[in-house]
Amino acid sequence: MTNFLELTVSGIALGAIYALVALGFSVIYRGSQVFNFAQGEFLTWGAFGMIALLEAGVPWGLALLGTMIGTGLLGGLVERSILRPLVGRPIFVTIIVTIFIGAILHATAHVVWGSDPMGMPTPWDAMKAFKLGEVSIWYNSLAAIFGAAFALGGFFLMISFTRFGVAMRATASDQETALAMGIPVGRILGATWFLSAAFAALGGVLLSMFPRQADMGLSYVALRAFPAVIVGGLESVGGTILAGVLLGVVEVYAQGYVNPLLGNFGQNFHAVFPYIVMIAFLIFRPYGLFGLKEVERL
């Protein structure tokens, strides 16, 4: 039972990070129907940027804010310089271009930060765990859960109650009408990239805390978050977050309970298991949990 509870907490912590990453995909997709394959690289840039700021002597909280804003600006720059000229082209071409943006960011990350893994310093004692009866919970897990919950909560408040949030929703629902209403659609799309890159940076920082490290492999975590985006439904932001948390829990349970059952076949099986669940799920609900069933007109 203790084991089960511990797995649940670390699953939720991992899931919270997946939810952050998946939200980044979903926000950009809602805004412009572009699926951003470069998302994973913002995790790497965020984590290494944070370490660089900390080494420069910036206090922890300020460094986190600075990293999120800096990575967000990088995302906005990518949108403005590469994706804006592609508006009106087939979406397929734009999606392919994001793959190459990812490759460029990955290689430049190698140039800028080198390829050695680095530990992420934390203001609290990263090796310590918090005891709740029998169950011990890493401080880092708590940080991941609260950090992600705080960011996601802030996002929902912004999107529901501010003028900017309304403009974002209007752009997502119909770009042309939004333009006709005087909403600066281009700037809104830039802002979606800013937000999604900032969330990814936060995810990267949270993910590279002990027991993991910041390394160039962080970007693959975005690949692992795909099932959350798909199961939640591409159009649904809330569904994506729910599915992200579920994905983390499923992955950790699979690691704890399914892997040992399968013997040799079970090594690293938890990395594949969410995909199998996703494929089985899509057979029954091809638009995900909360995705919109496409209504086609000729």
Partner: peptide, 9 residues
């Protein structure tokens, strides 16, 4: 994209 992610799986 749903199909793309299934093929990735």
């Amino acid at each position: 994209l749903y199909l793309a992610i299934v093929t990735l799986g």
